[in-house]
Design a protein around this nucleic acid. Structure first.
Lengths: 242, 242
DNA sequence: AAACAAAACCTGTATAAACGAATTATTGCA
DNA sequence: TGCAATAATTCGTTTATACAGGTTTTGTTT
């Protein structure tokens, strides 16, 4: 990580903002001053600052200085972010967790599966279904399809531990992009069977297609969350593309 | 818009991808070839391409070419994106819509409001509540607080038409950043009273704080959606910041 | 003191050039 | 033909520089 100087700047600024060394509603040093601090050129500082803007830490306006708009917020329930495995997310959110594999079998994609998942009819897939328990409660029901040709060798043991771990560290796959969609649906009989839904009759569903660095879609994922254990955060900016 | 050359490139590439001139799973011309097409320097092409990567259109890998991973998908229900008013979103999604203002009054933020909205105790606010009807059905319940000192003059008429229109075009406010959070909750009595919930007992809630270019938070917004009329899309990349 | 114009400052964008690192294509040899 | 070494291509990042177009400050005039 000695490479990527803008990454160092990004991280350093982010830390200083989070620890309130640069406090809410104050202004950062100007870009030229920052170049002196970090010993680099203005373009590099600019890049780091823009990354922080996109994540809701800073705000910029041409002509005036860079303003801090970050305020620390309370701990979230189960915050979704980036492409990450359940294990990573649980660790990040500081929960004790447990996974139970309720299904792991090979299927061939028919038209229905193909339409839903983005795979082609005839593709051979692993159909994996898992219950995610947090603090002892069954709260998330994960339904995944993996393209066998790209993910050969998934076992129940692996599915219980971490499939991403297996893909990245054993198969050496490079995971790149994920397109996700958040929706909500009425709970199905299967949901009610597997999850502790209490009074809720709906679920929040995060579905997505995940691509590897070769541009091959190797996964379709569907994470069905009990509503009160779900939170997604996002920062939007108006009018500008970047 | 003659300025912002990378914006032209971004738009042109995006169009060509959407119309499948550059088709799914094919590769773009290399960055140097693109510089010849668009008559600019590689950095500018690179910037446009990266913006398309973040939006799930393209995928890049050092050493190999830029791959198209965009596939056209079916029309969404009510797709959320960027900072936009209900009116803008309804137009974009091609729905007929109607807004009914059920409340518009001044309040002073107490501790409860302050905690929830991010305003300070004692701030004078407009409390605006509106029902959004799509295709004749009451599906979204919007609860907003606006900081009066920054949004003076909001009337029921304006609230029915478009508050953002008023802020931007009459008050000349520059809206900049919005931090949003998507959660889901059980429907309250108020929700049940105002919305046609059918069988659903939960709502998807988009809440957020909106800042203007001066770094002042002028709005807290809470949009309560009937689950089946909600969809949020997102693209995530693994491990890299940008 | 208030209003206005000019200067100073700051960000937004683009050019040009260089080197590093990963991938892909080619070449030469066995 | 098959394979390994090499070359060419392509993206990743940074440096250096320039000018445009905003905002803030300053100085002068009224």
């Amino acid at each position: 990580m000695a490479k990527r100087k803008f990454d160092e700047i990004y991280t350093d600024l982010k830390n200083k903002i989070e620890t309130q060394e640069y406090s809410f509603n104050s202004c950062l040093p100007s870009e030229v001053e920052l170049t002196k601090i970090y010993g680099c050129v203005r373009g590099t500082v600019h890049r780091a600052v823009k990354a922080l803007i996109e994540r809701g830490y800073l705000q910029m306006r041409q002509g005036s200085r860079i303003r801090v708009i970050f305020e620390p917020v309370e701990r979230n329930i189960f915050r979704v972010g980036g492409i990450e495995s359940f294990k990573e997310a649980a660790l990040r959110n500081g929960f004790t967790y447990f996974t139970k594999v309720v299904k792991l079998e090979k299927v061939v994609a028919d038209e229905e599966i193909a339409t839903k998942t983005g795979f082609k009819i005839g593709d051979e897939l692993y159909d994996v279904r898992r219950i995610r328990c947090i603090d002892g409660k069954a709260l998330i029901f994960d339904k995944n399809y993996f393209l066998i040709s790209a993910t050969k060798g998934i076992t129940e043991e692996i599915a219980e531990k971490s499939i991403y771990d297996y893909l990245e560290n054993t198969l050496r796959m490079k995971i790149a992009t994920s397109k996700r969609r958040i929706t909500a649906e009425l709970a199905t009989a299967e949901d009610k069977n597997f999850l502790e839904l209490d009074d809720y009759n709906c679920l929040v569903i995060i579905s997505g297609r995940v691509f590897n660095a070769d541009g091959i879609q190797f996964e379709y994922t569907e994470s069905r969350h009990r509503p009160d254990y779900f939170c997604f955060e996002d920062t939007a900016t108006r009018h500008k593309i970047i």
